[in-house]
Lab assay of single mutants.
Amino acid sequence: MQRVNMIMAESPGLITICLLGYLLSAECTVFLDHENANKILNRPKRYNSGKLEEFVQGNLERECMEEKCSFEEAREVFENTERTTEFWKQYVDGDQCESNPCLNGGSCKDDINSYECWCPFGFEGKNCELDVTCNIKNGRCEQFCKNSADNKVVCSCTEGYRLAENQKSCEPAVPFPCGRVSVSQTSKLTRAETVFPDVDYVNSTEAETILDNITQSTQSFNDFTRVVGGEDAKPGQFPWQVVLNGKVDAFCGGSIVNEKWIVTAAHCVETGVKITVVAGEHNIEETEHTEQKRNVIRIIPHHNYNAAINKYNHDIALLELDEPLVLNSYVTPICIADKEYTNIFLKFGSGYVSGWGRVFHKGRSALVLQYLRVPLVDRATCLRSTKFTIYNNMFCAGFHEGGRDSCQGDSGGPHVTEVEGTSFLTGIISWGEECAMKGKYGIYTKVSRYVNWIKEKTKLT
């Protein structure tokens, strides 16, 4: 034993070699072989497995989906700052455009905790909710729209109204504003409101030439003092309507412009014939205590009207009353817009006519005020429907199939267009061939041609 100890002390290297040989010859039971080890760690190889990531292109799944990435790591994937920024906006807080917040056709661009709407022409605001041009839906104005110097929408209202708090709607500024039905039992019968379409306001006024200088022999019209197929109006439903009495009662109609003036057809009036105007009328054979009678003290036909040349060209006249009318729910003026808007309103496509005229061709006159909704007829169809001249200051309205029309005794009465609950004068009943005849239409004086003249002559002093 002493000898062994001496050998170990003198030859430590020998001992180490012996131990190493023993270990190498022993069977290893701690580690699995290569094949079995792979069965336990069965993990798919990654895209760049075996390579240094710093030297390969980034992978979106590896960089940002398996674990949260930084902007720089995302930049490695896209290799483009702009594309990385677009991805980053949604990656950080989701897609803010998912709810489609942009209105009126706006395009949404996502941002971090926010979004941006790219608005089409005519709109602005956070969600493109603000109209900035009158060309689109009248700028959301209830009545009139004008573009300011910086191309912003400025709404306005006709006389007797003021802008509401929203700067879009119009509200009454006087007790009985024009064009409004205020009798409670008839307010439910107000005709369907007309909503502004998209309009090209630059070209809204037709490029028409008034044929002022045409000389033409007097034409022989049949029954051209021209509501057939209409309905009984309720008291106060058309408070701007008046009836004219002269040699015979209810020979023509008219509309209240203001307390002192009536507008009617020029062919209705004769110099030297006494005319009485009755406002607030409903049943011409009954006294309903809503009527107001006034005498006409002055007749002003349009300066281009000449019955000797043509009885229905420039067929418009103004009547001055001896005493002002007292405005109330049964006696209310009709609204008159400017030339541009009167023309736009007419193009809405349908209007209402009213009167006490004959209820059928050569038949009896109506006792109760009649009204009828009539569609506008395109000019080409209008011209083809008659052998008589249709001037540019006239328009056609009615039904091709016949059966409904204005008729004798309705002449001078109103053709009105309702705009968001307020009625505007767009025409004056003038003439036609018979009444409600198939293929024939009622012919009306186009008020847009005469609004400046009306307003100039009827100013209240």
Rank of each mutant, 00 (worst) to 15 (best):
Q2G: 13
R3W: 13
V4M: 13
N5L: 14
N5P: 09
M6N: 13
M8W: 12
A9H: 12
A9C: 12
S11M: 13
S11T: 13
P12W: 07
P12H: 11
G13S: 13
G13C: 14
L14H: 05
L14M: 12
I15N: 04
T16N: 06
L19R: 03
L19S: 03
L19G: 02
L20I: 10
L20K: 02
S25H: 06
S25T: 12
T29M: 13
T29S: 13
L32P: 04
L32A: 14
D33Y: 05
E35L: 07
E35F: 10
A37D: 01
A37G: 12
N38Q: 14
R43V: 02
R43S: 02
R46H: 01
Y47D: 08
G50I: 04
K51S: 08
K51Q: 15
E53R: 00
E54T: 00
Q57F: 01
G58H: 05
G58L: 00
E61N: 04
E61W: 03
E66C: 00
E67Q: 04
E67S: 02
K68V: 07
E76A: 01
V77F: 06
F78I: 09
F78K: 03
T81E: 13
R83V: 10
T84L: 06
T84Q: 04
E86I: 12
E86K: 08
V92L: 11
V92E: 13
V92I: 13
D95G: 12
Q96P: 07
C97Q: 02
C97M: 03
C97E: 03
S99T: 12
S99K: 11
P101K: 05
L103Y: 12
L103G: 10
N104M: 04
N104S: 05
N104E: 04
G105M: 08
K109D: 07
D110A: 14
N113M: 10
Y115C: 03
Y115G: 04
C119I: 01
C119W: 02
C119G: 03
C119A: 02
P120R: 10
F121G: 14
F121Q: 14
F123D: 03
T133G: 11
N135W: 08
I136H: 14
N138P: 06
R140G: 09
E142L: 06
Q143H: 14
N147C: 08
S148G: 10
A149L: 10
V153L: 08
V154Y: 13
C155N: 00
S156I: 05
T158V: 14
E159D: 12
R162A: 10
C170H: 00
A173V: 14
P175I: 06
P175R: 12
P177C: 03
C178S: 00
G179S: 00
R180P: 02
S182W: 09
S184G: 08
T190F: 09
A192N: 15
T194H: 13
T194C: 05
T194R: 10
D198Q: 13
V199P: 13
Y201D: 11
V202K: 13
T209F: 09
I210H: 11
L211M: 12
D212A: 06
N213P: 10
N213S: 10
I214Y: 13
Q216N: 09
Q219I: 14
T225F: 07
R226F: 07
V227W: 15
V228S: 12
G229E: 15
G230W: 15
E231P: 10
E231Q: 09
D232L: 10
A233E: 05
K234P: 06
P235F: 07
W240R: 00
V242F: 00
V243K: 10
L244T: 02
N245K: 12
N245H: 12
N245Y: 12
G246S: 11
K247N: 15
D249K: 14
F251N: 07
F251I: 12
F251K: 08
G254N: 00
I256E: 01
I256D: 00
V257T: 01
V257Y: 03
E259G: 04
V263H: 01
V263L: 10
V263A: 04
T264S: 06
A265S: 09
A266N: 02
H267F: 02
C268H: 01
V269I: 12
T271M: 14
T276Q: 09
V277M: 04
V278C: 05
A279Y: 01
E281F: 10
E281P: 09
N283E: 07
N283F: 10
E285H: 11
E285Q: 12
E286K: 09
E288K: 07
H289F: 13
H289K: 12
H289T: 14
H289D: 09
T290F: 08
R294M: 02
N295V: 08
V296W: 01
P301G: 05
H302W: 06
H302M: 02
H302T: 02
H303A: 08
N306L: 05
N306D: 09
K311M: 07
Y312R: 09
N313L: 10
I316F: 01
L318P: 00
L319K: 00
L319Q: 00
E320C: 03
D322T: 04
D322P: 01
E323Q: 14
E323G: 04
P324V: 04
L325C: 01
V326G: 05
N328F: 00
N328C: 04
S329F: 05
Y330L: 05
Y330S: 03
V331D: 00
V331C: 05
T332D: 01
I334H: 00
A337I: 01
K339N: 10
E340R: 09
E340H: 12
E340D: 15
N343C: 03
I344D: 11
F345W: 06
F348D: 08
G349Y: 12
G349V: 02
V353N: 02
V353A: 06
S354T: 15
S354G: 13
S354N: 09
V359P: 06
F360N: 15
F360D: 15
H361T: 14
H361E: 11
K362C: 04
L367H: 15
V368I: 13
L372P: 04
R373F: 04
P375A: 14
P375K: 14
L376W: 05
T381A: 11
S385Q: 14
S385F: 15
T386N: 11
F388P: 06
Y391L: 14
Y391W: 09
M394L: 07
M394S: 08
F395Y: 03
A397G: 07
G398C: 02
H400F: 09
E401N: 10
G402E: 15
G403Y: 14
G403V: 14
G409H: 11
G409D: 06
D410C: 09
G412W: 10
G412E: 04
P414K: 01
V416C: 06
T417A: 05
V419D: 02
T422I: 11
S423G: 09
S423P: 02
L425S: 00
T426L: 02
T426G: 00
I428S: 01
I428Y: 05
I429W: 09
S430K: 03
S430H: 04
W431K: 12
G432P: 15
E434T: 13
E434Y: 10
K438R: 11
K438E: 15
K440P: 07
I443K: 04
K446P: 04
V447W: 00
S448H: 07
R449Q: 15
R449G: 15
Y450F: 04
N452H: 12
N452G: 15
K455F: 06
K459G: 09
T461H: 15
